[in-house]
């Protein structure tokens, strides 16, 4: 790394002696600022904008959500009345909470293994140099760059019952038309399929980065010892990818539990609520049903569940610090 050009006006020779930092006024303050402000250490000024944004846009909603969850607040206006744990009692008995949470869970259960295995296979296939590798990498990763609405527009067209390309191809090999988005089991399959297509590229790049971190010598040494490709895969590569897999697993779990966008846009949670995830139910209760209080209570319960999983992530995350 080259030394950056530092433009330093040759000024007061006395600047090199004595305590350095304390003499300089904070860079963000003019000489006209009152002395009390000037005594605030520069670090405070550097942190302040971030901390203010953090307090207002991250911490305040957390607090507001908790408070609101004890009221029967309506979006139509007014704080409403204090209902204690009433909202929480209601959600425990609410079938729609149970079924939409189950949908989210089913989605997570189906999509997570696929998003790990497909990404791993893609990375293993393309981490060595080969003709057209750049094109393969582009093809795998590109969908991740596409806005979700574009993804669902394209797939709605592909999955169309009457003129869709996929049913057209199925027809070509003699399989009957499938009502991809209009029938419960098929709809969940479609949602998972679209999600894998759209987001697998992110995990693929994580695996690719991890593969590049495996020292060449391990493979050379084992080749000399006569290990074949499969042995190298199962004895060297996969064990060394275990930590990356753990990280991807947790990231993926959290992302999948928060699923909303692609399901809302593909099926609107249908048919007959069979794909509606918990986040969409929270949205329905809050913005369609206008019951902000109850909606906040469901959010909060859900928030705590994800927080527990995120704590596991933090542990993995801090163990990984060194290799950033």
């Amino acid at each position: 790394m080259s030394t950056p050009a530092v433009h330093t006006p040759a000024q007061g020779t006395g600047a090199t002696s004595g305590p350095r930092a304390s003499r300089r006024p904070s860079p963000r303050l003019s000489l006209h600022s009152p002395p009390a402000l000037r005594r605030i250490p520069p670090g405070v000024w550097f942190v302040a904008p971030f901390i203010v944004l953090y307090l207002v846009f991250l911490l305040t909603p957390i607090a507001l959500g908790l408070v609101t969850s004890f009221f029967n607040t309506s979006l139509a206006g007014g704080t409403g009345d204090f209902v204690g744990l009433g909202n929480y009692r209601e959600l425990l008995a609410d079938d729609a909470v149970a079924s939409s949470a189950a949908n989210t869970l089913r989605f997570t259960l189906y999509s997570t293994p696929l998003l790990i295995v497909v990404a791993l296979v893609m990375a293993l296939l393309t981490h060595r140099n080969m003709p057209a590798r750049w094109l393969f990498r582009l093809a795998y990763f590109m969908p991740f760059l596409v806005p979700v609405t574009v993804v669902t527009m394209i797939w709605t067209w592909l999955l169309g019952t009457d003129f869709g390309l996929i049913n057209g191809m199925l027809d070509g090999i003699g399989l009957g038309p499938v009502n991809w988005l209009g029938e419960p089991a098929a709809a969940m399959t479609s949602v998972v399929m679209v999600t894998v297509w759209w987001t697998v590229g992110f995990n693929y790049l994580l695996y690719l980065a991890a593969l590049q971190g495996i020292p060449e010598e391990l493979y050379e040494a084992s080749s000399i010892d006569g290990a074949n490709a499969w042995q190298q895969l199962f004895r060297i590569t996969l064990p060394l990818l275990r930590r990356t897999t753990g990280l991807i697993l947790v990231l993926q779990l959290i992302a999948s539990l928060k699923v909303f966008d692609q399901i809302y846009l593909l099926t609107s949670g249908g048919p007959n609520f069979s794909t509606r995830p918990i986040l969409e139910y929270i949205y329905d209760v809050g913005f369609t049903g206008l019951r902000i209080g109850y909606s906040s209570a469901i959010s909060y319960a859900f928030f705590l569940v994800i927080l527990v999983i995120a704590l596991i992530q933090l542990r993995l995350f801090s163990r990984k610090e060194g290799s950033a």
Binding site: P61, I62, L64, T68, K258, L279, F303, I306, A310
Partner: peptide
């Protein structure tokens, strides 16, 4: 403050969209 920042990493922000909208 740094501890507070680190704690923020695990907050699933999207989930609290209803209170955020209210705010």
């Amino acid at each position: 403050l740094y501890a507070l920042t680190i704690a923020g990493i695990i907050v699933p922000a999207n989930v609290l969209v209803v209170p955020l909208f209210q705010q």
